[in-house]
């Protein structure tokens, strides 16, 4: 009971501290705006419907998510250790495991909030992208400008509201802006279900590509894995070293298939590295969507189990490392 309350209190504090970082807000807003603007400005007539928006939306989700995850997770515990709030907390009846896992959970909840926003934005972006429309009054390639304006307005509305709240209540701007960004993009998604591609009223007709949901969930899983890695490394190293090692693990994981995949069984060393480094290819399924392909839900389930196992293993290392860490 007490442990649960401590855990939730610390996790919530971690999340709030993370979204108070201006860089977190900046990255989230950039990700959403880029996702929304790409289908409007890039002319891509002869390809497959919506491919550009799908690919770029998922890519922005992954890239901006990775930076938010790596940055927040590397700075969170490190900052508490540096400024001494960690020693204040550990002088209360809080075990080190509780603190460490609360740190991970707090950042993970920020990542989940960002991912929900990014997935909604990607779906809207796919809807905006040029499609061939054929009705009894018209036919041709149409860009869904209504949805485009709706999605691009969301970040600005969020910033405006956060400014007003900051003016009235004097509470921190960044955290409110982040939460409002999530709310506004979701709001835009809900509203988009009330009109069709040409702008006619069409209640509860969501003209979005639901195949993007499993694709986005897989990317979210990858982001949680990198959060676990960064949190664990940050028990021992400073922020710069942590971010550098995260990037190294990312790079190796990306090329693992090409470099090590085909000779994974040739030596213990290569097969060891191949198994230890997370294989990011598992989480990137955009290519499978091309040509109307579907992502089977049991593939999603398998990959989630892989991610969960990997995360659990990494967190165990983190707990061991933090247990004996000296806190000054």
């Amino acid at each position: 009971m007490l442990k649960t309350r401590q855990f939730l209190t610390l996790a919530q504090m971690t999340a709030v501290e993370a979204i108070r970082q201006p860089i977190c807000l900046l990255l989230a807003i950039s990700g959403i705006i880029l996702t929304g603007i790409t289908p409007l400005v890039v002319i891509y007539k002869f390809g497959e419907d919506g491919k550009l928006a799908r690919d770029s939306g998922l890519a922005f989700h992954l890239i901006f998510g990775l930076i938010i995850a790596a940055y927040s997770a590397s700075t969170s515990l490190a900052k508490e250790l540096r400024t001494g709030t960690a020693s204040s907390i550990l002088s209360k009846p809080v075990s080190r495991n509780t603190l460490f896992l609360a740190k991970f959970t707090g950042i993970t909840s920020v990542i989940i909030l960002f991912s929900i926003t990014a997935i909604a934005a990607t779906m809207l972006s796919e809807r905006i992208d040029q499609k061939f429309i054929f009705t009894n009054t018209m036919s041709g390639y149409f860009t869904d400008w209504h949805t485009g304006i709706l999605l691009l307005a969301a970040p600005f509305v969020a910033l405006l509201l956060a400014g007003i709240i900051n003016y009235i209540t004097r509470r921190p701007f960044e955290s409110f802006a982040f939460m409002l960004l999530v709310t506004c993009v979701l709001g835009a998604f809900v509203i988009s279900g009330f009109f069709d591609r040409i702008g006619h009223l069409a209640p509860l007709d969501y003209q979005v590509d639901w195949r993007l949901l499993p694709a986005g969930l897989l990317i979210t899983a990858a982001l949680i894995v990198i959060t676990a890695i960064a949190t664990t490394i940050s028990t021992r190293f400073n922020t710069v070293l942590t971010i550098t090692s995260c990037m190294a693990i990312l790079m190796i994981g990306l090329v693992a298939d090409y470099v090590l995949g085909h000779n994974a069984n040739s030596s213990y060393l290569t097969s060891g590295i191949y198994k230890l480094i997370p294989n990011w290819q598992n989480f990137w399924v955009s290519d499978a969507l091309t040509g109307g392909g579907h992502i089977p839900w049991n593939y999603v389930a398998t990959t989630f189990i892989y991610a969960a196992t990997y995360t659990a293993g990494v967190l165990c290392l983190g707990i061991l490392s933090f247990k004996h860490k000296e806190v000054t």
Binding site: G84, T85, S87, P172
Partner: peptide, 9 residues
Amino acid sequence: PEESHLYKH
């Protein structure tokens, strides 16, 4: 603690 370790926000 020697220095006041508090959350500033």
